[in-house]
Design a protein around this nucleic acid. Structure first.
Lengths: 339, 339
DNA sequence: TTGTACGCGTTATCAT
DNA sequence: ATGATAACGCGTACAA
């Protein structure tokens, strides 16, 4: 048990606590020989400054939070959250911050825990369902945060992907390939992601000669089951192509279609959304809208750190671009030849 | 900006710091009316005790770490880690601990960060590849920890699943169904999980009338690619059934088999390992060995907390049981009828 | 350049 | 039952 502290190191080096402290914090005003001597002792003893004391004194814990307000059950079955977490963790490593992970459970009052005095310097929060509005507590806790996804109250810094554009890209691609009856299986209509992708679908259909047919829109919830059922229904209905709200749902939809005797993409074209492995890996390779989720998490941390550096930094709202990744499930090979 | 502290609360209540502190920590020696009065003020002001100060004084941060020493790239593509994390997070919520997540990157010295003085009360660490042995630093940092998976040095508390038994269950099930040429695509041979499942496979084959044929063992690495290639090879070779080292690999193997013109399970039976969604969801439903990964993470935290309560608690080594979950890919329907 | 002394907010020990 | 007071380990203004 080391139980070392500044005093002991100071005694060993024959200097005062302050000097050791200065060495630790790279203060300029330390003579080179003293600095050397102290550093050697620090190395030899394996001394580490006590973080609690440091936090207390400096009012900086160097811990930042990642708050995932989804329900536990569905949280990690979609690769989105793991990848996001990875991005955040990567940034924390980079900037030498400790990452505290808060996953909202049914009972736990995450807000309470996140806003504890002296625990976090700030946090990144994934905006969840629309109805679970950000508690005012979060805001007037006065601890800085950045929202991932669009927040449901204005005046916050946030980072989001352009879901509308992504959907437009997907649908327009299907249109260009000559599909005429293009359906959409939506994501969760309680999320901005789900809603915005639907907006994009509607927009792309309306702006085309095909026009919008509300009957071709089936509501899903980002889960396998909903997509499976929707696809079954669409198989009976007979459509040319489906733009599905997420890759995970797309895979499930494809399964339903195949079981209904349809070939993808020969009989029906599919485009998903996310481009996160491993959902795209199976056959047929999924055409999908790529969101840079990892970079996203990374960037969110950087935005937060900026905010921490400069208290008066303006509110930033960053929309990250998306792009269509064309693989097999949209039938581009079969159709491009035909065109 | 609250910037409240004990003194201010004390003044407002007309008592001393000590009394407020006692109220906060549920000390018995406080009269009921004073307690009431102080609690009301605490509620009204929204006062929260400063955690840094608390940690400094009490030598307890109430933060516990989860250390995932895998490389970033592969980390979250397997559902194992997300689910494990979920279990750990759940336990932390339950016991009112803050969870700090450490994901080892290429450059970052996680050991250094994890063992910082005053940061963590203890941590749970996932044992990674065998060669990256636990640094001695971890051990003589003197901060308590529990290992998930078998540690490569003795004398540590750990929790593990019975990988050998799981493999035996799987292979024996295939044997009972009448398969004769039963192959194995292994997991990563640098992990205990991969090695132990191979041990179980060997054991089950040797103990049966079928005997062990080393040519039926193909090495994988828990990744899609390796399983795909191995399955292609086995398709040519012509085998009856394959016990695959993980569900994720099993899915990939099935894809290779189907593309080679084989039907699963009519032509070839498959059993995987893990039973974590969504790998099992697709068609055919995967027969697999269930590991209670979430409970696992939860339990690991409980073991750690025990250790924290009682410094002199004995080292515990807990082996969690596994069970076979029979679905479609093993061909039980086709074969049971035949038997 | 170095040392002294104070305060960060809390808990714990000792009186009263 | 309550209050004064001393730590916990560190950073820093100020003095030397």
């Amino acid at each position: 048990m080391p139980s070392l502290n500044l005093i002991k190191i100071a005694k060993m080096a024959g200097v005062s606590r302050s000097t050791v402290s200065r060495v630790l914090n790279d203060h300029p005003n330390v003579s080179d020989d003293v600095r050397e001597r102290v550093q050697k002792i620090i190395r030899d003893t394996g001394y580490q400054p006590n973080l609690s004391a440091r936090s207390l004194r400096s009012r900086r814990s160097n811990i930042i939070g990642l708050v995932l307000p989804q329900t536990m059950d569905t949280l990690f079955s979609d690769p989105y959250f793991p990848v996001l977490t990875q991005g955040v963790a990567q940034a924390c490593n980079q900037y030498k911050k400790t990452l505290a992970l808060f996953i909202e459970g049914r009972d736990s009052d995450v807000v309470q825990r996140v806003t504890q005095d002296g625990l976090l310097d700030g946090f990144v929060i994934q905006s969840g369902k629309l109805q679970e509005s950000f508690s005012d507590k979060l805001i007037d806790s006065n601890i800085p945060f950045v929202v991932i996804g669009r927040p449901d109250i204005p005046g916050q810094s946030y980072i989001d992907v352009d879901n509308v554009k992504g959907a437009v890209l997907a649908v327009q691609h299907l249109q260009r390939l000559g599909y005429r009856k293009i359906a959409h299986i939506t994501g969760d209509m309680d999320t901005f992601a789900g809603k915005d992708r639907l907006v994009g679908y509607r927009q792309a259909m309306q702006d085309s000669s095909l026009g919008l047919d509300e009957n071709l829109i089936l509501e899903g919830d980002f889960g396998e089951e909903s997509a499976y059922l929707a696809a079954q229904s669409l198989a009976k209905q007979g459509v040319d192509a489906i733009f599905v709200g997420s890759d995970r749902m797309a895979r499930s939809a494809i399964q339903a279609l195949v079981e209904a005797g349809l070939r993808v993409p020969e009989d029906i074209g599919i485009i998903g959304y996310d481009d996160l492995s491993p959902a795209i890996a199976a056959h047929p390779m999924l055409t999908t809208v790529h969101q840079p989720v990892r970079e996203f998490g990374y960037k969110a941390v950087e935005m937060l750190l900026e905010k921490l550096e400069d208290e008066e930094t303006p509110i930033r709202q960053l929309i990250v671009d998306v792009e269509l990744v064309i693989r097999d499930s949209c039938g581009v090979r079969q159709r491009s030849a035909a065109i």
